[in-house]
Design a protein around this nucleic acid. Structure first.
Lengths: 232, 232
DNA sequence: CAATACATCTTGACAGTGTCAAAATGGCTC
DNA sequence: GAGCCATTTTGACACTGTCAAGATGTATTG
């Protein structure tokens, strides 16, 4: 009785495209008030992303999620072995989305290497600030701690990191960025971006008005100034 | 009856010195099995740090903490308004400890500016890796999100950040580090260190064997190579 | 010393959580 | 149609943070 207030069977389809933002509205589906949901897994992922965007990861409970999806408390356990498993699946989507964004930016032949690096930095920060809750989930503690990470998550995240290394290799090859070890260098650069993103997201002595300025400062610091003098 | 297994009245004194590491054993105190604990607040902080070091922040519950301190479930609420309040207090201790470490390193007149910077980088990473759970608490989500941070925490953390800005100002003044805006530059550098620390702590495509190498790489990237050539 | 105020600690209770076990349900293949 | 099996539900358990009310000491008055 009391659960009638929540929408029933808010199923969703065609969620494969990761380039359209974090939260997507589930397309209205003409009533399927059947016992079996149809595509509960996707519906749960959609509802979870909504809830996370609304109230943060730490306020996501499986029970509220189930209620939002119009389903009983334990139904999700037939699609995700665990709460952690669910979170990993959402994070994996985030990595796919981020990976695609980064690839699109880097493969544009019209851009110079410097422009690609600038776009990479700006894009990274913007990605984090635009969907802070998703970002926090992707790089937060619970997912990566100990053996928490799912095989799927690792399989998706690794190419994402690897791509960063490859890009850095390219920037080093043309002299844009100093140093010789692309792996180490990209660990430092990723670290810087991650740290800045965290400062911005949590508002620790910073706010979103400083995004541009902080990014420019980072670019200036990392770009080899003798080879690529930056005026601005 | 069943709670007799946990030690009663494990009180602690002289915990002011923050330079002796994260977890400190509570000095044995000849039985004070009285109704009033004596210094429950300190005992709780000590026990909390133990539990966090043992099982991580996310596994710290106030009830287990109370049991460890030999006290009833709700006793902690007379010393901390909240679980969040407790966590903030522990984090504040961490910031005090870190601040003191950084100050000691920077004020040593025997060191060159380059050495100070090297020590700062190494020291930061080492601090994080040595007590990962405390580090995660200090810079983790829950503490800083929204209005979660206590006034005490902010009052302690701010000088810690400010000190980093001052150090960067010094390094820029002598030409060791490029750029002109100490605040922005220190945000980038702190970010890099934080990101590296997180990678190391969570073991994301890294492990502690690479601490030295990653730190050296960061130093090389940030130090103005034309003014301060680094051979190594 | 006695009485009272106050800080501290305890017991009881409540709503909320993740997750397991067993039963119910309904679409699928023979 | 019968039966299999994925899916969903109801019930239950241990655990969590936190509030309210009572119990117990310590300190401060008279």
């Amino acid at each position: 009785m009391s659960s009638l207030t929540s929408p029933q069977n808010a199923s969703a389809s065609q969620l494969k495209d990761p380039s359209q933002g974090f939260v997507q509205a589930a397309p209205a589906q003409q009533g399927r008030p059947s016992y079996h949901h149809g595509d509960l897994r996707q519906a749960l992922l959609v509802a979870a992303k909504q809830l996370i965007a609304e109230a943060g990861i730490e306020n996501l409970s499986l029970r509220r999620l189930a209620e939002r999806a119009g389903v009983s408390r334990t139904a999700p356990y037939h699609h995700f072995s665990d709460k952690n498993d669910l979170l990993c699946a959402i994070a994996a989507e985030g990595f796919r989305r981020r990976h695609q964004m980064a690839t699109l930016g880097f493969d544009d032949p019209a851009k110079t290497m410097l422009e690609k690096f600038e776009d990479y930095v700006l894009g990274y920060i913007q990605f984090a600030v635009d969907s802070p809750e998703e970002y926090e989930l992707m790089f937060g503690r619970s997912i990566w701690k100990q053996q928490n990470s799912t095989r799927e998550l690792r399989d998706v995240a690794y190419p994402c990191f690897q791509h960063q290394v490859d890009m850095v290799r390219g920037w080093q090859a043309c002299g844009l960025i100093a140093g010789d070890n692309p792996l180490r260098t990209s660990q430092v650069i990723w670290g810087a971006l991650h740290g800045m993103a965290k400062l911005l997201i949590d508002g620790i002595y910073t706010d979103s008005a400083q995004i541009e300025e902080m990014s420019r400062c980072a670019i200036k610091l990392f770009v080899n100034n003798s080879a690529y003098p930056i005026d601005k």
